[in-house]
Design a protein around this nucleic acid. Structure first.
Length: 480
DNA sequence: ATGTAC
């Protein structure tokens, strides 16, 4: 056992405050014994560093899929008091509001099997993907400000969303505090041509089928049943979010000095939430988040059109509603019970999913008894999970859980060990069709490059920070 | 993740 780290509960480890000087709170990490044994020491250090920041509440947290990241680890969750705490771009990440959306259909695996290739090709044709990919809608420089400030409301007014889509999106697809004037011209210039594109790396679109139901009641509420075909969309804010993050990291470096914040790591550059600098970052980040929601909305629109083309039916008749859309790189103003009192905090979730429990007023009425849907994608050869938020998450993790399988191999390692063609053939033998913008990305993203999604889902489930509803298996994959 | 650097 590592020094100053102990197991405190089922699948829960704790870094005590004497792990490192200046820690204000302990660090809690959700892991099984094997994940714990294999976790890099650097990640413990990053969790401890975050625990040193001003105004942090209760614990510096890491989810089961945690690994090393810029400043905060990926899988890191931290809440800061709105009066005494800080906000940090490193606690959100470069891809602001990277997230996952799940769409339903009323088709079964059998209905889609014979059309799969044509369907996947149609989706691949209709949704721009790849590094530097450009969207196919033309918007003006003035219009981008509306995208940034109105989010999915903009997409609705332009005819890219159904009337009720917004109800099944976190924040209804719109951070109201977003301020486009705080986003640099350079960020807008990068974002303008890319709106409505998948991007590359771990971003993907998947045609999946529901393989197993764990909770019939929750599955029914979410509109999910065995053998049903669903669509998973994983993308974020593209070059625009990346540029906002880069711009504000530089800005925050001087702010940290101005406010005399002692940083254990320069990558944790931050500013008081109550300061001009902190507020500006929050409002710019929110604009980036809105762009990402519009991006997933446009992709949704083209997936619906692709299904219409292939199945010669309207997307309405195919019941292609949004099950839910989660952000997994974001900071939010939320209220949580701390020391028995309701408190206003800023929750940073960096590679972590909100997992609000039953009864929370931000959950749509048809899901409120179950808890918020949580979407956890795995690797392209294995499975993904639909889970639900819990009261335990509210009490222990500020209503947060894992966001994915987490990488086991770096991109460079995966490229050395695997060939895109071979990975594609091997998946095809398993009945999984893969279309990609480049062969390299298939090798980088091969199943072996990821940790076991079953382990991650089980740690979430067994620790109780989210509970399994359904397991989905991939049928067709589009990679950037 | 990302016009894989300013």
């Amino acid at each position: 056992m590592k020094a100053n780290v102990k197991k405190i509960a089922e699948k829960t480890y704790q870094l005590s405050t004497d792990y490192k000087s200046d820690m204000k709170v302990p660090g809690n990490i959700y892991l099984d014994d094997i994940l714990f044994k294999n976790l890099e020491e650097d990640v413990f250090e990053q969790i401890a560093n975050v625990a040193c920041l001003p105004g942090i509440q209760k614990y510096s947290l890491a989810m089961p899929d945690c690994h090393y990241g810029y400043g905060f680890c990926i899988g890191g969750v931290a809440a800061f008091d709105e009066k005494t705490g800080v906000i940090s771009p490193g606690g959100v990440g470069f891809d602001i509001n990277c997230g996952v959306r799940l769409l339903k259909t009323n088709l079964t695996k059998k209905d889609v099997d014979s059309n799969l290739k044509g369907l996947l090709q149609e989706i691949f044709k209709n949704v721009p993907s790849g590094l530097g990919s450009k969207g196919k809608i033309k918007i003006t420089k003035n219009e981008i400000d509306n995208v940034l400030e109105e989010g999915v409301d903009w997409a609705s007014s332009e005819g890219y969303a159904w009337k009720n889509d917004y109800r099944h999106i976190e924040e209804h697809g719109k951070m109201k505090n977003a301020d486009a004037s705080l986003v640099s011209d350079n960020a807008k210039k990068r974002g303008l041509p890319q709106l409505g594109s998948l991007g590359s790396g771990n971003h993907f679109l998947e045609v999946q089928y529901v393989d197993e139901i764990f909770d019939e009641n929750a599955a029914k509420a979410y509109g999910v049943e065995k053998d049903q075909v669903v669509l998973m969309i994983h993308t974020g804010s593209r070059g625009l979010g990346h540029q906002i993050c880069a711009d504000y990291l530089r800005y925050m470096e001087s702010a940290s000095k101005k406010y005399n914040i002692k940083l254990p790591d320069r990558q944790l550059a931050c500013a008081p939430i109550s300061s001009e600098e902190g507020m500006r970052y929050f409002n710019a980040m929110s604009a980036g988040a809105n762009y990402a929601w519009v991006n997933r909305q446009l992709v949704t629109n083209w997936i619906r059109e692709s299904f219409e083309q292939v199945f010669k039916m309207s997307a309405e008749d195919l019941e292609m509603d949004i099950i839910y859309d989660v952000a997994h790189n974001i900071a939010k103003k939320e209220q949580h019970i701390i020391d028995g009192k309701m408190k206003n905090v800023i929750v940073h979730r960096k590679g972590a999913t909100r997992a609000f429990g039953p009864g929370h007023d931000e959950i749509p009425s048809e899901y409120v008894k179950i808890g918020q849907p949580v979407i956890i994608p795995g690797d392209m050869g294995t499975a993904s999970y639909l889970m639900h938020g819990t009261e335990k998450a509210m009490n222990e993790t500020f209503g947060s859980t894992a966001h994915g399988a987490g990488r086991a191999l770096s991109r460079v390692q995966a490229l050395k060990l695997y060939k895109g063609n071979e990975v594609q053939e091997k998946l095809q033998k398993k009945g999984i069709l893969v279309l990609a913008d480049s062969k390299g990305v298939i090798a980088e993203e091969c199943p072996e490059a990821y940790k076991d999604i079953e382990t991650v889902a089980n740690v979430c489930n067994d620790s109780g920070i989210s509970l399994k509803v359904a397991k989905m298996r991939p049928m067709g994959v589009v990679k950037g």
